[in-house]
Design a protein around this nucleic acid. Structure first.
Lengths: 210, 210
DNA sequence: GCCTTGCAGTAACATTGGTTACAAAGGATT
DNA sequence: AATCCTTTGTAACCAATGTTACTGCAAGGC
């Protein structure tokens, strides 16, 4: 575990802190599609992502979903922080987008480390900062962009996260995450194909030039 | 200044911290409609709101606005925090919604107080927590609600913030903050009036039963 | 091969929201 | 009162998105 930690967090955490994390943290390896956090859960631990990616989703009262953003190596979930501090329930759902490795740190250490380690303070604040900004840009996209622009951003981001030019999703799945309908997504994808930006196949999409 | 501080923050900050704030903070009284922060500004200080209300707005590339949320007594702007920590520019605009009193605290104290005062740590984290949740609910409303529902929430919130049942805005102004158009807002308001929920007048709206 | 199931393509239509254009009403100024 | 400006009301129209319904196709199981 110490090896993975050092690799992903060695440049930002002090040695002492790394050692503490090794002592109290638990290493987890989770497959793609695993649900880490459900809306309404009480959260006891904080995840430090070593590899892979996690998607953070929001849901409304009717069960409609919306993708908020992804977490990657070196990220943690500020929502989790926020929830734990406030001792409240999770407002979001977290699902692994790819196979992932992460370390769970018990929440009790938060306060202690915040006082003790400058690097931990910076990490936590940076984390909040980045997540706030990601939320803002998600909000921008929903408020100001039309569906075609949102779809293009989605495809780009998804390709980046999955490190390739293939997106293994059905139109229906994409529609869920963008909170739209399958027919609309198929329509727009077909347009993108006709423009030569993508190639459509059954169960996957190949990015050509977005 | 110590009096106002104690009144609004006495129950959450230690005496010592209050004293420090009094020493380094500057008291400000600002009228309604005053622009406190503009997008792109570098921020040197952090505002502690004593009375009144501040609206936080987002803008897209075309200059279209969108109301994010309000700050009230006892609140501070996490965006500001986020920006200062990251030494980056402001992502938002802040304008007083009503006449307001606030104390500006220089940013340098942040780090120091975070180590020194547990109450300050809690305040900062709570602040982040609340702002994240407000952003989330704004996002919900944009993503999942139709314009009529958004308008109703807007009117309710505005009435609450202004502590009354009169909303002193033109249809055009409301349209800006909801990122819609005047005609659409007039149309929906007229419907609400016909349902007996509100009364329309020139330059103001009276809330009857929302 | 044949059947079932899930995915994608497409047409027709409904709804929401945005745009343009113009009229009418309320206030303020002269 | 005559004029001017701002705000509001409304109609007609358009574009984007969502809905319903039906089709064909691919893959896997039988």
């Amino acid at each position: 575990m110490i090896q993975e930690l050092t690799e992903s967090y060695g440049s930002i955490f002090e040695k002492d802190l790394i050692n503490e994390i090794v002592q109290v943290g638990t290493f987890k390896e989770v497959p793609e599609g695993y649900k880490l956090i459900e809306i309404g859960d009480y959260i006891k631990g904080m995840p430090l992502l070593i590899s892979g990616a996690i998607k953070i989703l929001r849901e409304d009262n009717d069960g409609d979903e919306l993708l908020l953003y992804y977490l990657e190596k070196g990220d943690t979930c500020s929502m989790t922080l926020a929830c734990c501090m406030g001792d409240s329930k999770s407002e979001i759902r977290a699902i692994t987008e790819t196979d992932s490795k992460l370390i769970m740190v018990p929440m009790q250490k938060m306060e202690e480390w915040t006082v003790k380690y400058k690097s931990w303070r910076n990490f936590v604040f940076n984390s909040y900062h980045e997540r706030l900004n990601e939320l803002l840009s998600t909000l921008d996209s929903i408020a100001f962009d039309k569906m075609d622009a949102r779809l293009i951003s989605y495809l780009k981001e998804k390709a980046r996260i999955n490190k390739g030019d293939i997106i293994n999703n059905t139109h229906q799945e994409i529609a869920y995450e963008l909170h739209s309908s399958r027919v609309v997504i198929s329509r727009l994808l077909k347009k993108l194909e006709q423009m030569g930006s993508i190639e459509l196949h059954r169960n996957y999409i190949k990015i050509l030039d977005l």
